[in-house]
Design a protein around this nucleic acid. Structure first.
Lengths: 152, 152
DNA sequence: CACAAAAAAGATATAAATGTCTTAAAACGG
DNA sequence: CCGTTTTAAGACATTTATATCTTTTTTGTG
């Protein structure tokens, strides 16, 4: 599989936040229900995203998480890097430590191109853009069942 | 990480076989030493590749594994599919089960392009071609240390 | 202040990937 | 037939990823 569950969940949750928009704090509980993701697991993921300063969190009633102002223009790539590091965008596809121009693996050149394309694809659109597309409809962030508009 | 250790090792080992070329059986022990990969783990991987009919195996003295004649023109993609299935080339990048034209995730369209590019990159070159490039020098399949030409 | 809501943090459980070890079966060479 | 080489197969150990549960801390409200 390309991405870990952590990344899949993290990206879906962040896109969900971007889709909801606004400055309101959304409880993780709510997000976990909206997207059908394990609440406790999602909590851990948001703790990472909070430490990475991609989201603000607030405790207590009316608390929750929201996209950090300074991070509204981030891309999916930034979520990935926060959750898993940048291995996908830097490392040799065959796992060879010093793979590079000097000692390339047989796939080095080919993979370099693919990698760049992947980086562009994950880095090309901002969460704002993706959130807007999400609101415009036709897109989906959960497995099955109909969409329930968050109440707050 | 993009690929599992199983895939990394499997691809490296298969490229090694392609680089050696010929009809000779190469013992897994030898390959594991050449590439610095755990012997027992590599054995398991070759058992999968044998069952997938990508390699022939032969027991006893002068035994080992070799590329199957019919599979000389396969690509790295075929190794990947044999070892991990085709999820990487078919599944939604966010893990959504019914992601498609009808109910696309926000990344569906973008990922479809990347995925195709990745498929082309893993499917573009045959093991024969890659083996020839390997023999022509300048390429590397192990982490460090100098290359030791297999004696048989 | 007491209570409830919510994130943070820690502990634990389960499953999957990775790695190692042992035994069995096949093939060959004396 | 016996010993060696090798793959095949199975058992086991370790680590990492995934998932769940409990406790603590913060915050708002009555």
């Amino acid at each position: 599989m390309l991405l870990s569950k952590t990344s899949e969940y993290g990206i879906r949750a962040m896109l969900h936040l971007a889709g909801v928009g606004g400055d309101v704090y959304l409880p993780v509980k709510r997000i976990s229900k909206d997207l059908d993701i394990s609440f406790h697991f999602l909590t851990k993921i948001f703790q990472q995203l909070t430490r990475a300063e991609l989201v603000d969190s607030y405790r207590g009633p009316n608390g929750g998480v929201r996209l950090r102002c300074e991070a509204r223009s981030i891309a999916v790539k930034d979520i990935l890097v926060a959750l898993e590091g940048d291995d996908l965008f830097t490392k040799c596809v065959l796992g060879l430590p010093e793979c590079g121009e000097g000692h390339p693996c047989p796939l080095h050149e080919h993979w370099a191109r693919s990698r760049m394309q992947i980086e562009t694809m994950f880095g090309g659109k901002s969460l704002i853009d993706l959130g807007a597309e999400l609101r415009s409809g036709g897109f989906r962030l959960r497995a099955t069942g109909e969409w329930t508009e968050p109440t707050k």
